[in-house]
Write a protein that binds this DNA or RNA. Structure first.
Length: 141
DNA sequence: GCCAACGTTGGC
DNA sequence: GCCAACGTTGGC
């Protein structure tokens, strides 16, 4: 199983919207690196759901359902979409500020390339984030 | 709302 | 094929 992180603006389509919508098409990605990450997703992969612009935190866990397929919203170009389903909100959101503080999370795309919208997460990074999500905010040294 | 960082585009 | 200009994203 692999782990990923996707970004979304809560005002556009937040984690609550994903929960409400059930199985949802993750489309509209127009960046090659992000697209290639979508294409590498497999059914059952875990997906951390990050709120950009507002919230600035990882707020939920989702799951990939089905392989990548051509993006229905792309009139031209070679773009891909996948389907996601919400699993559960994190017990506590993990804020970007905390991720930036954690020494073992400095290689996350979220830290290194703020503009990538779909990125891989290592198993170690994933478990650290899930641990942080048990603790709430401001317990970091 | 601003602006830095990044990716993409297009002129040469 | 290079690189400057432009548009977009997203943290602040």
């Amino acid at each position: 199983m692999n782990y990923w992180l996707v970004k979304s603006e809560p005002s556009e389509f937040g984690f609550a919207a994903l929960q409400a919508a059930g199985r949802s098409v993750w489309d509209g990605v127009r960046n090659y690196q992000a697209r290639n990450n979508l294409r590498a997703m497999k059914t059952g992969d875990r997906v951390l759901f990050y709120h950009s612009r507002e919230g600035l935190a990882i707020v939920g866990l989702a799951e990939v359902v089905g392989e990548a397929y051509p993006d229905p919203t792309a009139a031209t170009g070679d773009w891909s979409a996948v389907d996601l389903v919400a699993r559960q909100p994190l017990p506590y959101p993990v804020p970007l500020t905390r991720i930036k503080q954690h020494p073992a999370l400095q290689n996350l795309g979220l830290v290194r390339n703020g503009r990538l919208s779909v990125m891989p997460v290592s198993a170690e990074e994933f478990s650290i984030i899930m641990e942080l999500a048990q603790q709430g905010e401001d317990t970091a040294a």
